[in-house]
Design a protein around this nucleic acid. Sequence first.
RNA 1: GGAGAGGUGGCCGAGUCGGCUGAAGGCGAUCGCCUGCUAAGCGAUUAAGGGGGUUUUAAGCCUCCUUCGAGGGUUCGAAUCCCUCCCUCUCCGCCA
Length: 425
Amino acid sequence: MLDIKRLRSEPEEIRKALERRGIDAPLDEFAELDKKRREIIVEAEEKKALRNQVSDEVAVAKKAGEDASGKISAMKKVGEEIKALDLMLKDLESQLEDIVLELPNTPLADVPDGADESANVTVRTWGEPRRFDFEARPHWDLGAELGIIDQERGAKVAESRFTLLRGMGARLERALINFFLDLHTGEHGYTELFPPILVNSESMRGTGQLSKFAQAEMYKLRDDDLFLNPTAEVPVTNIYRDEMLAEEDLPIHVTAYLPSFRREAGAAGRDTRGLIRQHQFNKVELVKFVTPETSGDELEALTANAEEVLRRLELPYRTVALCTGDMGFASARTYDLEVWLPSYDAYKEISSCSNYLDFQSRRLNIRYRPTGGGKPRFVHTNNGSGLAVGRTFAAIIENYQNEDGSVTVPEALRSIMGVDTITQA
RNA sequence: GGAGAGGUGGCCGAGUCGGCUGAAGGCGAUCGCCUGCUAAGCGAUUAAGGGGGUUUUAAGCCUCCUUCGAGGGUUCGAAUCCCUCCCUCUCCGCCA
């Protein structure tokens, strides 16, 4: 959420910033409610101060054995007035909260403007899309033929958009997870976590997954206040919810492999084939908790860490700066990594790396105490996938396919896979 | 699932016949003194959030309100009493 003080002191800057995202923020309504709120606070607090003072007098009088019944009955009435004011206040605050929680983050100044992905800006491209001297095939066909991807049986066991991996397919999935984690922990300095796969509603709310918009995407358990993890960002970012960190603790760089689940409620007809859009998918997440001064550089580094995975796998990709209209709700800057996918004849998102500034930590109440004392400050958070496993799987099958339908194993995975080529079992 | 104990500030930990306890004490931290350096020692400061005032802004200062797991209730007044919920720990049960 945005800083209330900022909404109050620089509403025009915020209005302009949100307009860049195509949002007409109800800031006038906010200002009006906020003004009313403060008026009531003043009134209520005056009465509370009076009550506190008289209550002390009652205590003194009683100790002295004097009669205080006049004061007591007067305060009884004041107490009722306070109760009424507090009720009004509560109502106003929930109205204010409704407004504030619906406001997305303000984009950083140099984020490209635009309404949709057509305005995104490619910041770098790595590798050349392979030119095939035969008819390249999509991973779902190759995978089925190789016997490593079985979508029919996945659907039988669960439903469509669930997949059974078999043999070298299952092994490739596992190899990718290991490879990602080993790279990020061994060479990029992240600490590996394995968080709960079920998360409670407070955690979901903390990272914004329960907004009207996002809610329908989530699998909810019937008998418990728990959801299936939609992205490791949720359990990982929430580990420090309501905590006071020390500046010496920062930066915190963590990575986690976790199965993720999404209902894909609004995605009917999109990416229906193959592994691109599944209800259950594996992802290795990168999350950073950092000081405000460093979050920009930290995002660049995090993005580079995710890119390194694609380079080691020698998969052609490009890095795209999302425009204001295409960025996620909480983000102030986002880079998407897009891998070349021959079946789509296009680059397809495989990672999304964002700087949330203090937008997330404010809502989650994650602060740190600066070295040398001083007021607690909100940390900044960064987050990105490093990478989505299923999409990497698909990219490897397609980019490394051979004319005979076999798939060459990328150099970097051979020791984990134990073979150089995936062939029909 | 059954029985019991408990949830207090950055951390630990006092606080039951409800009333200068927003909270003793300790640790940690910061500043100062001391010291050849370090350690030890001495002194001071140190919860957060929200209003109002002051200030050109910020900082600072003054003042008030709220907060002792969460929510409700009783009361002039609640960390202290009552209710509901959540969580943690111990024992038992079950179990990979």
